[in-house]
Amino acid sequence: MIISLTIILLCQLLGEVVARGFGWPVPGPVLGMLFLLAFLMLRDRIRRRVPEFGRALDSTGRGLLAHLSLLFIPASVGVVQRLDVLAEYGVGLIVALVVSTFVTLVVTVVTFVGVSRLSGSTMEAADDPTAGEKP
């Protein structure tokens, strides 16, 4: 647990150092996610010899993600400082959000289905765990 947490924080630290050091506009934690992904691949190789290595990482990661909603609250409460902005632009912002979300959903799903047909990677029975349950 404590080792896993240290590894996750270390990945974030590396991400921040690289992002700020090179002046990239990518947030440090996103780079940190890539570092952790690389570490997980490395871990599974080492694990063939040392089965105990980094075992708690998955459960620690899932623990952090279990109450993701909670972590958004402090920043979201900042809206109390932006009530004037919402009063002035609220209608436009809501219209922009609704229209944009609608368009994004349609464009993304149509692209995904279209390309998967063209590339021959349509949904296989093996991909769908509930395929057998359908009538």
């Binding site: 947490l5 996750i8 924080l9 990945c11 974030q12 991400g15 947030p27 440090g28 934690p29 996103v30 940190g32 996610m33 890539l34 570092f35 952790l36 992904l37 997980l40 990482l57 998955d58 620690t60 990661g61 899932r62 952090l64 993600l65 993701l68 972590l71």
Partner: peptide, 9 residues
């Protein structure tokens, strides 16, 4: 921050 890193899992 750490939660974002954990999305790798």
């Amino acid at each position: 921050g750490p939660a974002t890193v954990a999305l790798a899992v």
